[in-house]
């Protein structure tokens, strides 16, 4: 469950994050402001509260989600705000000269974005993106509060029924590490593969 929630939330937060970042760097106020207000609001509210909101408050408004859906949407939206800021920093860090050069060749705006801005931003953004990814994996434990049976919930259940606290929590910590370390290695590999040439 930890892996499933993390992966789904990762996809959602990355896609939304790109949207926020593009809105905030668009230079158009009617796009910048909503994205800014949204990301700052989300970043200002603990993930736990957001999850409760989605799982307990939305049903009262007629939106029924199961615990897994609520976990993915909650984590995905929460992390999209952090991802958005990381992507925005990446976009702003792209050498302005290369963007001008693309414009000066008569490239359409969408092509300047897809051929020049985003590929260069990806390289800049990889290390902080990897950071967010690992935090997301660990924050998936927060989905337990809305009864998604992820790793730390299971650990608590086992520990309380067997009283083997030390064994169970050591095992849980090791399992998280087993999940995180491949991610860390993956990001390191990506950096090498796409890093600054």
């Amino acid at each position: 469950m930890t892996i499933a929630v993390t992966l789904c939330a990762l996809v959602l937060s990355t896609l939304l994050g790109v949207v926020w970042a593009l809105m905030r760097t668009s230079g158009k106020r009617w796009l910048e402001w909503p994205a800014m207000i949204f990301t700052n609001t989300i970043r200002g509210i603990p993930i736990l509260v957001q999850l409760f909101y989605i799982y307990f408050v939305l049903p009262e408004l007629g939106v029924d989600l199961n615990a897994f859906q609520a976990g993915v949407i909650g984590l995905g939206i929460a992390y999209s705000a952090y991802m958005g800021e990381v992507f925005r920093a990446g976009i702003l860090a792209v050498d302005a000269g290369s963007i001008e050069a693309a414009e000066s060749l008569g490239m359409p705006r969408a092509r300047v974005l897809s051929r020049v801005v985003l590929p260069q931003a990806v390289r800049i953004v990889l290390p902080p993106y990897g950071n967010n990814l690992i935090m997301l994996l660990k924050d998936s434990s927060q989905a337990s509060v809305i009864t998604v049976a992820e790793l730390s919930t299971q650990a608590r259940l086992i520990a309380s029924s067997t009283f083997k606290n030390q064994e169970v929590w050591t095992m849980a910590a090791l399992l998280y590490l087993c999940l995180s370390i491949p991610l860390i290695l993956l990001v390191a590999w990506l950096e090498k593969r796409f890093g600054q040439r």
Binding site: D95, G97, S98, E100, A101, A102, S104, V116, Q120, Q196, R197
Partner: peptide, 8 residues
Amino acid sequence: FQRFNLFA
């Protein structure tokens, strides 16, 4: 351009 502005 003065600073080449190549696509790095």
